[in-house]
Design a protein around this nucleic acid. Structure first.
Lengths: 342, 342
DNA sequence: CTGAAAGCGCTTACAG
DNA sequence: CTGAAAGCGCTTACAG
């Protein structure tokens, strides 16, 4: 394995000059640069990233922290994020945090040793950020939840307007004539109007507000069923909800994974979607385009979320500017899972 | 940020002794260990991993290389792999490689700077390993494809017996009475019996062999349609296959993602699964349990693949033993997508 | 059992 | 524009 020392020796220049070439500094003669670059290429030299990190007390990498590895939406967001980072010629490592853990605390522990030059958080609970994010001093970005109210000056955020989009989902059902609508997903606290500090809980709020505006009665105890964000959880929750409240003609599942589980649960209870019960999801994950029937959903613009998030982060890493908070437009996808109530 | 120097100063011992405590060396007095451990805890000290890596010319991390980030099966395998690594008290970083890239070459480039102590490859083409894996000298493991024939003594592998399982999938259709069976997925070369060096192509081989054994005629030009491993690709390929060969009564999609796309394509062509056409997939990904109808599939034991792979790797990192190659049992899941031909 | 010291591969003032 | 040298935070023979 060639080191900078070897390159210096072979090229006939000093280690310092080689280092300047590696780091694209301007104060190197054209001649030296040419020669050294040739040797680097010929030797297949890659600078030792540990030495570099140690010296600069800062890694050359961006770290991506993903909360909840089994979340299809986040997987797709991660994919786009990695691609965008690659397009900038940067590389990133990924750390997955269990959904039950405090992503900020766990990340803090890991990052303490690693010292990334920037952090991307995919998914996450605003409350845990409020409490512990201040340990991070590097430029960071939270994608998919709004961090504006937290006011950290090194944390940007890019997110869907969950509250507004939740209203949109509800409207899609109401406008077809539904008056008995259930909501699936989220944490038990969401029913009491507590802020669980995440986007999904805002979806519920937005939907309920829209129902109220439309004069549709909604009672949390009767029409709402909380559950985690997996298809199986959606399956179980849908069964609970419909057993308790059999007169529902439609449901809003606050994530597509839930919705896919719910649709299957309805079928197992003898109900066909959309004939017997309508359904709308949230996220716009790929599988919704292949379910039978295709799922109506709120499609988040994963591509743009990732692009704006990464671009902003890398810009702040190199130029140091203020954090920004931006809402990325969503889109309602009609699908085939909504019909008029019978 | 406390360094080892601070810990030494506060505890009243030398840097060397602190280092020995950190690394759990035996030659430290009980008294020193207690005192130093207390200071470390009190200061929240984490050794700088770059300094460590630099000095030992070896990172303390395992790296996981995943080929194809959008592959649901690999995502689930990645999840289990990360969990298992965590259970050993180790941490891992993840690098995603584009499906079109040579995962070994790209990984080689990245790892050159990073020097992980071990490598896990999830998914991958045996042929690319054959050509370039020799650049790696650290203990490695390939999970989900068989590397036995390559003979690298630092590369273990754990995989499903794809050929055998492909036969099982075909048998599930034949035993119901199907005689006109199509196969979906894989690379064009697979039709010519070229070895594309991946598990999935072995699934095709196994299935075709089983059909021959059963006296069911199979003609690649007529009954086979290659395509990449996504739902959309499966959707398009299913349409092409069925347009060309409308008398098929059943199909084997060599991955579940393909199968989900194919089922949707059949429906868009007016065919109901399984009434009009039966379908069996491969992998056993979670969504197959929620499709309507539920998908029959070959379920790979993701949990066990990950567990055996990680355990073997970590053992070889600490003890240095020979590479092993192991087949992990699979399971046929009946689902609801297979019926007798009409 | 413990400490002093060399050195891992780099970057960056500093001097010229 | 270039080189010599200090030092980032650690580990590990070496000496005692």
């Amino acid at each position: 394995m060639a080191t900078i020392h070897d390159i210096a020796q072979i090229s006939g220049y000093s280690i310092g000059t080689v280092s300047r070439v590696i780091n694209n500094r301007a104060d190197v003669s054209e001649k030296a640069r040419k020669k050294i670059e040739a040797v680097i290429r010929e030797q297949g030299f890659q600078p030792n990233s540990s030495a570099r990190t140690l010296r600069q007390s800062m890694s050359s990498e961006v770290y991506i922290v993903v909360r909840g590895i089994a979340n299809t939406f986040l997987q797709s967001l991660l994919e786009k994020t990695q691609i965008r980072i690659g397009e900038h010629g940067e590389s990133a490592s990924v750390q997955f945090i269990k959904e039950a853990e405090d992503e900020v605390a766990v990340a803090a522990k890991i990052m303490q040793g690693i010292k990334p030059k920037g952090l991307v958080f995919l998914g996450g609970n605003t409350n845990t950020f409020r409490q512990t994010f201040s340990v991070f001093t590097v430029p960071s970005v939270l994608i998919s939840a709004d961090a504006e109210s937290l006011g950290f000056d090194n944390l940007s955020s890019f997110s869907t307007d969950d509250r507004d989009a939740g209203g949109c989902a509800a409207r899609a059902l109401v406008s077809k004539g539904h008056r008995r609508i259930g909501i699936l997903g989220g944490y038990p606290g969401d029913a009491e109007g507590e802020q669980s500090g995440n986007g999904p809980s805002l979806r519920i709020r937005g939907a309920v507000e829209e129902l109220e505006r439309s004069g549709v009665s909604f009672d949390f105890a009767r029409d709402y069923e909380p559950c985690p964000f997996s298809a199986e959880a959606g399956y179980q929750a849908a069964k609970r909800l419909l057993s308790r409240t059999p007169d529902l003609t439609a449901a809003f599942a606050i994530s597509d994974s839930l919705a896919i589980g719910a649709m299957r649960a309805f079928r197992d209870m003898g109900l066909h979607t959309p004939r017997d019960i309508s359904l709308v999801g949230f996220d716009g994950i790929v599988p919704t385009r292949y379910t039978i029937p295709r799922l109506a959903t709120i499609e988040q613009d994963v591509e743009l979320l990732a692009r704006r998030g990464v671009d902003d982060l890398l810009m702040r890493i190199s130029c140091e500017g203020p954090a920004v908070h931006e809402k990325i437009p969503y889109r309602f996808v009609n699908g085939e899972s909504i019909a008029q109530p019978r």
